[in-house]
Write a protein that binds this DNA or RNA. Structure first.
Lengths: 252, 252
DNA sequence: GGCTTGACTTTGGGATCCCAAAAGAGGTCT
DNA sequence: AGACCTCTTTTGGGATCCCAAAGTCAAGCC
């Protein structure tokens, strides 16, 4: 299943996101063959995949053109994802067999609660939290009864911050105590939202479930905005490093 | 831009949707090479594309497996699309520069109104209506300010009834006068919803715009449901023929 | 007789070759 | 001197070849 082309696509995607290529730069198949030491077949498959992902465009003439996503692009995509998740929350609250999936959600909430209460936010804790958060969100997507919601989310999950359950971690969190306090508070707020969503789904309140999920994703967008304002020039590469916990690949 | 593989993918997609292959059937690259008289390269590209579209799955072992979409699948996808469009309507109602796109929407509404008032629903009229409807919906997607909404919609627009502005036309509409009357009434309702959406967007009322767009897409789902109930066994192929006006390909 | 193991066949992934079309460079004509 | 035409080179699409892995069948062993 995972052939060279998939791996190659991931590699090129990483390069694009990390800004190795400049916006609008033309890249040729032959060039990629040389630099990655593979044949043209996987290169073409990879490029077609990236084209469908929208981070490379295949113009009428020849050559592929880089379409590196900006922070604004990613925030737009996060908004779309959040909107789809709010649909999933509403549908799950209406699903007759939703009870079977409530356990996983409750456990995820509990895990996050425990981690937040411990108060340490080191890498392993962040990874665990990330994982629990992913469980919470994918459970809703999977239990909403509409498989296309989950499918559509997967279609756009290649961008940074768009994988299921991506969380923003502030790299400044370990610098100052106030930042640290702020980060923990934010995580508590997020999990409180999780609890409301859980309750609404359990009680079969679709309006409340959808509304709270909308707010939950809005919180993330707002948080990225505060990053942007604070750091001045937030790069896409920064967002990758924040959400890098989800991938096995170390930052380039 | 449109190479053999794209064309081939469209051909195989049509075959799958029209039920040429049975569910779960394995198809091999070599087989497709023979039947469509092309080399393996475009076949592989086409299969990878169809795999991403979700109508063909590439298992761990060898062979691709057909995943022909059911009526339920399509209705789920329509729900997703409708939800995304409701986001677009909300965002457009909040967009500062929305005024520039209001003209196209108004004209589309007027065109549909004229066609409905004439009262004839022959093929050219249906095609015109389809076209105007497409203008209305794509204008909202394009003017909402979030490019990813439109992008995400395109990602799932390969299924029948999912292209922008797809409309359901009742093939029984020409049979009996009451069905005919019913069909015209339904179109009037639909355009009345368009008018409300237009008004809400113009006045900058995001809640009303989103709500009415949600209702608008819900109307379509409900209509497909009535089809299903009436005909007993509605097939995906039927839906294609209902929405076939949008494509140049005649029904197989 | 059933199970295991080995050879054969099928099939998909990767590499290479060929070709047509398009971009670029250079020369020529006005 | 500038514009247009032509030739060359680059590049991407399609075809074919090769290989490795997986499935299959059969024969031999327990």
């Amino acid at each position: 299943m995972d052939s060279i082309d998939t791996w190659l696509a991931a590699k090129i995607r990483r390069d694009i996101i990390h800004g190795v290529y400049s916006e609008g730069e033309r890249l040729s198949e032959a060039q990629l063959c040389k630099t990655h030491a593979v044949s043209r077949t996987p290169v073409r498959l990879a490029l077609r995949l990236l084209e469908r992902e929208g981070i490379v465009s295949r113009g009428e003439g020849r050559g592929y053109m880089i379409q590196s996503p900006s922070i604004a692009d990613i925030m737009q995509a996060v908004q779309v994802r959040g909107h789809l998740e709010s649909l999933a929350a509403r549908l799950m609250a209406q699903a007759p067999d939703r009870a079977t999936s409530l356990g996983a959600m409750a456990q995820a909430i509990e895990t996050i609660d425990d981690l937040v209460n411990i108060g340490r936010l080191d890498a392993p804790a962040a990874r665990q939290m990330q994982s629990a958060n992913e469980v919470f969100h994918t459970t809703i997507l999977g239990a909403c009864g509409n498989d296309y919601v989950s499918f559509t989310c997967k279609q756009i999950s290649h961008l940074p911050m768009l994988a299921a359950g991506s969380m923003v971690f502030d790299r400044a969190i370990s610098d100052s105590p106030e930042r640290w306090e702020e980060g923990v508070f934010r995580l508590k707020i997020g999990n409180a939202q999780h609890k409301v969503i859980y309750e609404a789904v359990e009680q079969g309140d679709p309006v409340r479930a959808e509304g709270m999920m909308r707010e939950h994703s809005h919180t993330m967008i707002r948080y990225i905005e505060t990053f942007e304002k604070r750091d001045g020039s937030l790069t896409v590469s920064d967002l990758v490093s924040y959400s890098a916990l989800e991938s096995d690949q170390p930052r380039a």
